[in-house]
Design a binder for these strands. Structure first.
Lengths: 203, 203, 203, 203
DNA sequence: CATGAATGAGCTTTCATTCAT
DNA sequence: AATGAATGAAAGCTCATTCAT
């Protein structure tokens, strides 16, 4: 005999957030398909049916996790932008490292997400309709700053943006699982950008 | 409508290769779980049962695709190593770009693979038993070369290896889908390593 | 054509029992492998997926059917034990005949089960972990009773137990399918134990 | 490139017998469904395709195994019949024990067979068309002998036949897997028929 | 006489989703 | 707000059988 009526402890807002948090971790770890509603429900302490009280479809839940995460991450990165390109880069990478330290599932989810969007036709369609301005603007903004301060040539803009995107993805996909390796990679990147990592061969 | 029994044209060697090639493309695109035996069989022009004539389990097929791809890629990258660190880097990145040009599914599969190995417990277990020496040695060799030629400080070794790994993963996961963006990112990386991308701010 | 969602009339307890009852009949008739989830689901009026709402694996279902049946049968047989060996034997065989009359699938399942446990490695492993004390104790108890009343020599104990086991299995495997033949065999056994079936040859 | 033409060592007659022998063991152990053509081919050292050179269908192979086994067993049992019922019984049970000692798969197959015939509609149909006269006649003959010698009452004929059938099946299904237990059961049966196992209670 | 490539149907199991309660 | 009974589709895999070679 299940208890009827509204459970005493139930708080929709808070339950919803618990679902989103568990979902981010599971999606980050196992991917979209690899995360069953059942596993999610178990993690949250609900049944699969209850999930549908909060989200119409698994896809909608995934989307909401994405938007939450994206917002949280870029709020932090944007706050780290400074007066020069190199200082901003340093700040942004440090901020990324800090985020990864506090909650590794943030970066892991975003990396996992890029894969799932490519793999899943259905997910791809929905993501195509999202507003990605913020993400694009962020890298473009960094480059613009570098050109303004004279740190970058205007002609190297696209190249630098592509480079930043590549490095970011490498950090997320490659080393966000281990704090130590993440630290090392971040230090390497900064040192390289400062021109202090490599010099011409001895001869 | 093919009939029962052995088809006239059957050639085991060639069919096996067709399976592996189709599998690499599908695994690269849709991942391990996202690639059903059915989809693979359809792509090759067989039934799912026939696949088991060649591979005992889906996992074995995946493994074989991996080993084939890994071998092919590192044969090419190792051939591109030169006398100095910077020349080797340039050569290796160009070789990678060439490979990606000829058959994008090679890099895409390897990127896809890293994700699947993390997501799939079963895949992870099997991969743990594989010999990854070659992959590890490759980056370590590049760094040793740089130290020998004086291009790198010995103390920066670990940092540089982590950086190379990060950049490689970024290239594979981030931009191997588009030739143009891949080109741009490669050029950016080379220019950055040459110290010709960034300079101190004007003031 | 039932629709999706929970049917109005659903009653878990009763459905579960219907599954177990149908399963016993099918397992008795067709064996473990010969009984497909599909056939069982059809017999109960469900889909195969619904079975997994009640049992995690086919094997668990089989086990539960076994325990139910075993308990039911031995409850009846033990109740038939009397003051002397010969009266107990008569009572137990009559009880067995009665059970077989009421629901032939009980004995048939147990006979079928012994075969399946030998045939199926997986089934054998699980059954090895079960507690078979009750079954063993039952025959041992009968023999002890016979020795106590002087009906049996103590030295014939093991032989008599083996004989009882053999006769029981013969009844179950050989003639439980036909009431008439079962009756005849039971009568023959009793008469034989009473010493009224065979006498020395005429000469 | 498979070797073409007739393999040097091939001897149809002998290969056929090897198939039948392996088949009897596998069918006895795992049953009809539980024995795959593949497993049988492996045991014999052939491929599944080759089996079809000797038998049109799995079912035909099974049938042939049955007829071979049945003939072999009853040749032996009939040879053990003596002048009186009790001596015949003793002889037949000893013969059965000897057979079981020499090749346990004989009795095991026959026990396994009865189950499979009941479980498998297709098998049942084919067995219904077989001539079971010999098996039936054998028990009837024993009973007739007992009546002739005065060891049995004519009125107890059907009952005794049912009893013999029950005991035989019990021996085969229950204890043919272990020589020791088989021996014990055989001794118990003989002693019981001799009237030397049970006596009235002490009062 | 024998191989081995291939089919098509079947199996157990998992899953997203629905909906009466 | 939440449960849990149920569906229907799909998955990986096995199998008896066929037949070109």
């Amino acid at each position: 005999m299940p208890r009827l009526g509204r459970p005493a402890a139930a708080n929709a807002q808070e339950t919803r957030q618990r679902i989103l948090d568990s979902a981010r971790k599971l999606f980050a770890d196992k991917g979209y398909d690899g995360t069953s509603n059942r596993a999610l429900a178990d993690a949250v302490g609900l049944t699969t049916g209850a999930l549908y009280h909060y989200f119409d479809r698994k896809l909608d839940l995934y989307l909401e996790v994405y938007e939450d995460t994206q917002r949280h991450v870029y709020d932090n990165l944007e706050a780290a932008v400074a007066d020069t390109f190199i200082d901003s880069l340093r700040g942004v990478l440090e901020a990324a490292h800090g985020l990864n330290n506090d909650d590794p599932s943030l970066a892991q989810f975003l990396g996992s997400c890029r894969v799932d969007v490519q793999r899943h036709a259905e997910l791809g369609e929905v993501f195509a309709t999202l507003d990605h301005t913020r993400q694009n603007d962020f890298f473009a903004g960094l480059v613009r700053l570098g050109v303004k301060t004279g740190e970058l040539d205007a002609g190297d803009g696209a190249r630098t943006a592509a480079l930043l995107r590549t490095v970011t993805i490498g950090l997320v996909d490659g080393v966000s699982g281990s704090q130590a390796r993440h630290r090392e990679a971040v230090d390497g990147i900064i040192q390289l950008f400062e021109g202090k990592l490599v010099r011409p061969p001895a001869t």
